[in-house]
């Protein structure tokens, strides 16, 4: 179940990375419709996790509009580890975007003007200036998101269920052992692991953030 947890969290972070970077970069600029994007991005924070899981089930379930199409391609998400990763990705998206956005916002805008007069176009500027400068911040965001991903519960259990060896992550396992009489000792052990992982994640993120700060200071 520790392996499941790590697999789900890693996949949730890696697959949502491009979208999170794109959303974070967009939100660090001014453009029409920014408020709408901001709202959509933050939706998973405001909605009850169980509702997010339910919406995913409606969309990606076997009979859902997206799920039925994916099923034809042989991809099943509901009640699978991949589905757990999807639910986790949706839930951590706000935190992920926020930490990456901070990295983009901390970069000196003047450098983009300097790149423009050196004949770098908008895409060129993004890949040659914005992305490398935000790199350490993005890495810190990934660690942060990974730590948060390890703790997802409501949306995951709703969309992917609690199948040992398949979709049962650490928090789901804690929940499962607590359902049994005398499971407190096992729950405490699992909680200890969970706590250590979370702390390691936070520490790594803090270190990366400090590195990012030094790098931006030039």
């Amino acid at each position: 179940m520790l392996v499941t947890s790590l697999w789900v969290a890693a996949n949730a972070v890696l697959w949502s990375l491009p979208l999170a970077v794109a959303a974070a970069f967009a939100l660090s600029r001014r453009f029409p419709g920014k408020l709408a994007l901001e709202g959509v991005t933050h939706l998973p924070i405001i909605l009850p996790p169980v509702l997010v899981g339910f919406v995913l089930l409606m969309l990606f379930g076997r009979r859902g509009p997206i799920g039925s199409v994916l099923a034809q391609a042989g991809i099943h998400l509901a009640f699978t580890a991949k589905g757990a990763a999807l639910a986790t990705a949706v839930m951590i998206f706000p935190v992920f975007v926020r930490s990456i956005r901070l990295a983009f916002e901390a970069t000196d805008r003047n450098l983009f003007e300097a790149a423009a007069v050196l004949r770098a176009g908008p895409f060129d500027r993004f890949f040659s200036i914005a992305l490398p400068l935000a790199g350490p911040g993005i890495l810190a965001g990934m660690v942060m998101a990974f730590a948060a991903a390890l703790g997802e519960f409501g949306a995951v259990i709703t969309f992917a269920a609690n199948i040992p060896g398949q979709t049962q992550t650490l928090p789901l396992a804690i929940y499962a052992v607590l359902q049994e009489p005398g499971g407190e000792t096992a729950a405490l052990r699992l909680a200890g692991i969970s706590f250590i992982l979370a702390m390691a994640g936070l520490g790594a993120a803090a270190l990366l953030q400090r590195w990012a700060g030094r790098r931006l200071a030039g």
Binding site: N110, L111, E113, A114, A115, V117, R215
Partner: peptide
Amino acid sequence: IGLVFQDARLFPH
């Protein structure tokens, strides 16, 4: 047209 800024604006990375 090249432009040299007052504050140099070298790329720190």
